[in-house]
Write a protein that binds this DNA or RNA. Structure first.
Lengths: 223, 223
DNA sequence: GAGTGGTCTAGACCACCCT
DNA sequence: GGGTGGTCTAGACCACTCC
């Protein structure tokens, strides 16, 4: 059923921008139940191929934007899955003063009591990614007790915090001297960075994290 | 219903790794129809929170990897939506010789007759992204006739090619002199790059494209 | 008010896969 | 063989939104 609809869209029987017949009519035409049609169209809408509105009907999307889904793995698993040895090292851990918080960007400023952690994840002994993380210990009090010399905040949080929304920015930065030293590259080298903020279900800011990858890292996504 | 299940997972009533009761039992417990349960669990499985197998039952995923979906927009729309003027300029267009093809990486080598296009997309007169694209004209013969001085290959392909899979790599590179000139930055500046290959539904390679963004660009993704 | 999709029910049969 | 999810049917009522 869903395939039948897909075929029509591909065959441009229903071209981009077209308003489809309503579900009941489609069901009649295909000789199936409306709920079947509903499921099929629903699913295509989830994939971004159709737009649906009550009373407004179902429309083939004009510019079908490609939708890529990519997974944000626990770093340890990402490394181990590629068959390499994983090593983790805590670099520093301290509470931020008010001044320090203001010196960081937007996100960190909003947080209450802030724990700042720097840690390095390595793959087969080579620096892989530098984790720079701020955790709001008012929202996640357990973080004060956690032993981040044994488990990375990355892994600890994923296991502790049930679910959440967030925001992710990807960019290229120039390696600062301090980071270059840790990541064993030259100062000035281009480095791949992700900046992530995470909220819990009450939309309270839990954590902000910058991940700076080794020189030459490519992030891979399936389409 | 779906929310009720979500609550249980959050509340660790069903902790990671737990095997859930079968659909019929859950339906009994919640006092609803099995198909309702099925829809709810199905949907959570799509989001990566549950794993389901016939005969094997439904299990809460052990390490719930965050799944981010992001859209790959037509560049023109991306710029116009941010309220800026869009400008497009074709820089060069030519067919690759066999030697040139081999000089490029893996992807391009696999292609038949290869059309190479370089073009610059600008936002309010500022260089935004440099498009470096190779198109297999055996698979997409219409590309030979297209006027890429008027429409970007980015937009043209999205409108022509119905659907496909692909592969996306994100990285940070050091600006080469030629690219720096076009993008109006310094040679050596870190630049954000995406490398994408796209197949059609028959898994034939259609196009390879490198997008190199202006210095300071951050790609934004919702989680 | 009327027409659309959103969601649910109760029941059925099937496909897969483990033992 | 038997238990699980996958998918479908036929019907119902609801929620939204445009007129």
């Amino acid at each position: 059923m869903q395939n039948a609809v897909l075929k029509r869209i591909h065959a441009r029987h229903w071209a981009p921008g077209t308003l489809l017949p309503n579900e009941a009519d489609i069901a009649l035409e295909f000789g199936c139940a409306r709920s079947t049609v509903n499921r099929a169209l629903q699913s295509l809408a989830d994939k971004g191929l159709l737009e649906r509105r009550r009373r407004g009907g179902t429309r083939v999307v004009e510019h079908p934007e490609r939708v890529a889904t990519f997974k944000i793995p626990i770093i340890r698993l990402q490394i181990e899955r590629s068959g390499c040895d994983y090593h983790y090292q805590l670099l520093s851990q301290n509470h931020l003063t008010q001044k320090q918080k203001i010196a960081r960007g937007q996100g960190v400023q909003q947080m209450g009591d802030t724990l700042h952690i720097r840690a390095l994840h390595s793959s087969d002994g080579n620096p892989y990614v530098l984790e720079d993380r701020w955790i709001d210990t008012r929202i996640v009090p357990a973080a004060k007790e956690a032993d981040f010399s044994a488990i990375s905040p990355n892994q600890w949080l994923v296991e502790q915090i049930p679910f959440s929304g967030g925001d992710l920015k990807l960019s290229a930065i120039k390696a600062k001297a301090a980071d270059a030293k840790v990541l064993k590259c030259q100062a000035g080298d281009p480095l791949f960075r992700t900046e992530r903020t995470t909220w819990n279900t009450e939309r309270e800011l839990i954590t902000v994290v910058n991940l700076t990858y080794f020189h030459g890292y490519k992030m891979q996504v399936e389409l």
